[in-house]
Design a protein around this nucleic acid. Structure first.
Length: 916
RNA sequence: GGGCAAUUAGCUCAGCUGGUUAGAGCGUUCGAUUCACAUUCGAAAGGUCACUGGUUCGAAUCCAGUAUUGCCCACCA
């Protein structure tokens, strides 16, 4: 016999091991079944699983289990991400803290630091693996991948080289986002803006007044810019020069006219700092102006700053203002100037735009082959979503996606950190010396390159690594490449893809399920890379997308809507704690139900506890079924068929009907990704219909076949949501020829088992019992006390008369009279239902005053309600324009309502007579 | 500055393409230890669906505007 309460701790690990050992998670590339693939967004191998991971694992596991049971060859590829900047900065901080190192990069050197990180990551991967298992994730561990695997590294190199040869990757001096704290560039998407209030200074600059919030960048400003149509400055000509007094003495200034200047803003004149500002850079490019670096990569001022040289910019600002003031050049300071500053998403350090030689991907060059045309990366990314090749759920994110593409600039892919895929570019030291020119990359290749082909001298590899999203962008297909084949360097990437069985069977993947916060970082770049790589391949119909559907989930927040953050541990809910306390099934339900795609949701412990209660309810319902079987000396595993409908009771037929409707609803909901709704639907069916009514009714006479049949179906339908408890219970109720639940087939709704009439009839019985209970409660009758009940029902007397036992037992009724004709009764409380009049009589207990009051209120409410409907029906425009079906429905309401109203009136007059 | 969303019971949320006397869970109130389950059972109270207009025979649902909140994007010095 099962224990009284479900104990997930005693079950989950055992069940998971059983699944894993049985090979249930392992997909077969040779199978004839239709594939269904999900590439798991790889968690960063930096620490622990958090709720964001938990929600993604739960969602994906539901998708994959559902499709597996539906008979698809389901593959869920797990993995982890090397998360370049995040990991490196985390290990560096760790070394600083634990080993008291001041500058681990300098102290350890590249190789040693990379090894430190590698060790850390290995450990972290182990942790993550264990935690992913705890969630019940049915992913294929035999195919686990890591974004720094050898195969993935090869793919990265291959793609880099291909793009380089296509002219899509280029190296150039561009203005980039420099993070002085982390000592690397970051991409546009890795920047956050924060509103700050800072002083806004206005200075005299020759005959002009210019304003800035950053005086510390102004040393080299020798261009003064204004709008060409600004009449105030019409007397100055473009290109005109003049000498102006500036911070460290006179400067030769040049007038530039450009439409980028807004005459309405400030004085309408500005000076520019092309090295440290995006707008100024563009402007300088347009007019071919000189650019000069003012701030070093360490965040300190360079010698151009004269006496301020070497000062950190924060310290220098006030002193510079001080100096300008003393020279009489300060005009005003506006203290409440609000503007946005750029911060690094990772280290939260202030971003300093800098000009730096970096590697970029050109998103506008039209050399990308896609469906036999040549487009730009931007255009392909747009097209696949516009034409519906990729569908985004919820749809509104498609708009955001397009908007992002419209504003997309070339993607800076190089990073000045050491952890990551190294840029596969090599420089010859000797040749560089020979012609004394800037380094020429002489070899861009997929294999490590040792000596220069021409001169035979040693080469050095580019020190930079690639943006972590460069490798993640290859995730859906690089994980499906055969790792052994990938060792053969004589094969091209195209050949590798076409000969890898997994790739050919499982790509494109079906659904990419991830948080909406990384749609740009990741989703769009997977689209970019996958379409680019597969576009030229005839065998792949000139281009594959990485996935058909993108399902975006929202963030999980605290109960009061705040972000959960590590810096505020009290707000954090640790999924592993919750699993230990309530079980993985309960946690999964609590995250899925109430969450709709693209929207944030709130989670709190009571909610998880609520679903723990549900899981326990299911557990006990199963115990009840097993107990009934035991009482009937029937081994549930021998039950294989349902009796014919004619041999079943009303309750049985009604339940079977409700089950078929449920099966339909669940199928419909899951295929349309409506997980929350489906979860709620099953929850209600199990608790309210199956437990509260059917099981209670069946305490009288239980049909074991029906009990077992329905329970089995519930377990199947619920399995994607609650894999552990359902699998555990399945072992006790499955038929002897069935295997594990995880491999069981999904049911199809059977029309022949539907019996809406039985369902409606049972509902009448339920209504009558509910009415009796309500009357008992109103009259304050003790729960144990038995009562007399008289029911008048013209239409349903026969039906009710056939079910007296149910009414007697569930209503605690000792004397039951059912009649088709109504008689006036004294001393009874009454409930008027639409099809029946239920009288509860109990000598002495009936409070006539209260009863009259109750019925009067009911009468008044009903009158008002019917008046409304009558008005509607008397309105010609309604009866003429509304569909006949709706009109008919309203007529029926009136009919039923009037019947009830008459009964109420009758009853009131009877009671009146009694009072007299 | 531009865009997107949300606003329904004390709390957390459903309510899909307009027709329900607007639902659920938690919480609250009353009652119950009935032999599957107190992680339970029965009953109840609680909402002018943010506001203002409009479309419509009919609006929580569609449209416009307002307010509040949240998010994303953006180079105004």
């Amino acid at each position: 016999m099962l224990p009284k309460a479900y104990d997930p701790k005693a079950v989950e690990d055992r069940i998971y091991a059983m699944w894993e050992e049985s090979g249930a998670f392992t997909a077969d590339a040779k199978s004839d079944k239709e594939p269904f693939t999900i590439a798991m967004p790889p968690p960063n191998a930096t620490g622990n699983l958090h709720l964001g991971h938990a929600v993604m694992l739960a969602l994906q596991d539901i998708f994959i289990r559902f499709q597996r049971m539906r008979g698809k060859e389901a593959l869920w590829v797990p993995g982890t991400d090397h998360a370049a900047i995040a990991t490196e900065s985390m290990v560096i901080r760790k070394l600083q803290k634990e080993k008291k190192m001041k500058d681990p990069r300098a102290q350890l050197g590249r190789e040693t630091l990379v090894n430190e990180i590698r060790t850390f990551v290995e450990q972290s991967k182990k942790t993550i693996r264990g935690q992913v298992r705890k969630m019940g994730s049915s992913c294929d561990w035999s195919r686990e991948r890591y974004t720094m695997d050898a195969t993935l590294n090869r793919c990265v190199n291959e793609v880099f080289v291909k793009m380089y040869r296509d002219g899509l990757i280029y190296r150039g001096h561009r203005i980039v986002n420099w993070d002085p704290k982390l000592q690397t560039t970051v991409s546009d998407d890795e920047i956050e803006h924060e509103e700050r209030t800072e002083p806004f200074y206005t200075f005299k600059y020759g005959p002009f007044e210019i304003s800035t919030s950053r005086p510390e960048t102004k040393f080299g400003d020798k261009y003064v810019v204004m709008h060409p149509d600004d009449k105030r400055y019409a007397k100055y000509e473009h290109g005109q020069t003049m000498t102006v007094e500036w911070i460290n003495g006179p400067i030769e200034a040049t007038v530039i006219k450009d439409k980028a200047v807004d005459p309405e803003f400030g004085t309408g004149v500005m000076t520019i700092t092309p090295w440290h500002d995006h707008v100024d850079f563009d402007l300088a490019e347009r007019h071919k102006l000189e650019k000069q670096q003012i701030i070093g990569f360490d965040g300190k001022l360079l010698p151009i700053a004269g006496e301020f040289s070497g000062m950190p910019i924060e310290d220098a600002r006030e002193k510079i203002v001080e100096k300008l003031k003393s020279k009489g050049l300060l005009v005003s300071i506006k203290e409440d100037y609000v503007h946005n500053v750029s911060l690094s998403q990772r280290g939260k350090g202030k971003i300093e735009p800098q000009i730096k030689e970096q590697w970029f991907i050109d998103v506008n060059k039209r050399v990308v082959k896609w469906k036999r045309r040549e487009l730009s990366l931007k255009e392909v990314m747009q097209e696949v979503v516009k034409t519906g090749l990729i569908k985004i759920i919820p749809e509104r994110f498609e708009k955001e996606y397009f908007h992002w593409i419209d504003n997309l600039r070339d993607w800076c892919i190089s990073r000045q950190i050491w952890w990551g895929h190294r840029v596969p570019v090599y420089y010859c030291t000797k040749c560089k010396e020979a012609n004394g020119k800037p380094q020429e990359h002489l070899y861009v290749g997929t294999e490590p390159f040792v000596t220069h082909e021409l001169c035979g001298s040693p080469v050095t590899q580019d020190p930079d690594t690639l943006d972590t999203w460069f490798s993640s962008a290859l995730w859906t297909w690089s994980t499906l490449i055969d790792t052994e084949l990938a060792e053969d360097m004589s094969m091209s990437l195209e050949e590798l893809l076409l000969t890898s069985p997994d790739f050919m069977k499982f790509h494109p993947t079906d659904v990419m399920e991830t948080g909406y916060d990384i749609i740009f970082f990741w989703v769009s770049r997977m689209i970019l890379m996958t379409t680019y790589v597969t576009g030229p391949m005839a065998e792949l119909e000139y281009g594959q997308v990485p996935f058909d559907t993108v399902y975006l989930h929202g963030m999980i927040r605290t109960r009061d809507g705040r972000k959960m953050s590590k810096s505020d541990p009290e707000t954090m809910i640790d999924p592993l704690d919750m699993i230990a306390k309530y079980g993985a099934d309960a946690l999964r339900l609590s995250m899925i139900v109430g969450q709709s795609p693209g929207a944030d949701s709130r989670l709190y412990e009571e909610k998880i506890a609520g679903y723990r209660n549900f899981v326990n309810k299911l557990w006990n319902a199963s115990r009840f079924v097993l107990m009934k079987c035991e009482e009937g000396h029937t081994d549930p595993s021998t039950i294989t068929a349902l009796p014919h409908a004619k041999d079943l009771s009303l309750a049985d037929r009604a339940l079977l009907h409700a089950l078929e409707v449920l099966i339909e609803d669940v199928m419909d909901g899951l295929t349309n990704y409506r997980l929350s709704e489906v979860g709620e639907r099953i929850y209600a069916f199990v608790w309210e219909y199956f437990c509260d009514w059917y099981l209670e009714l069946s305490k009288g006479t239980a049909n074991l076949a029906v009990l077992v049949h329905v329970l089995r179906k519930i377990l199947v339908l619920l399995h994607p949501y609650c894999p552990f408890v359902t699998e555990e219970l399945w072992a006790s109720v499955k038929s002897s020829d069935a295997g594990m639940l995880i491999k069981n087939t999904w049911p199809n709704a059977k029309a022949e088992r539907k019996d809406p009439e039985a369902y409606a009839q049972l509902q009448i019985l339920i209504d009558v019992i509910t009415a009796i209970r309500k009357l008992r409660s109103e009259q304050g009758i003790e729960p144990g006390k038995e009562v007399s009940v008289t029911i008048f029902s013209k239409d349903h007397a026969a039906l009710l008369d056939a079910q007296p036992e149910h009414i007697r037992r569930l209503g605690k009724v000792n004397s039951l009279t059912i009649s088709g004709k109504s008689v006036k009764l004294k001393n009874t409380a009454v409930a008027i239902l639409s099809g029946a009049e239920v009288h509860l009589s109990l000598e002495g207990l009936i409070d006539v005053e209260a009863e009259v009051k109750k019925l009067k209120i009911e009468h008044a409410d009903l009158t008002k309600y019917l008046k409304g409907i009558e008005a509607k029906l008397n309105d010609k425009s309604f009866t003429e324009k509304a569909p006949p079906k709706v009109v008919e429905m309203e007529r029926k309401k009136i009919e039923e309502g009037k019947d009830k109203l008459n009964k109420l009136a009758e009853r009131l007059s009877t009671l009146d007579n009694i009072k007299k």
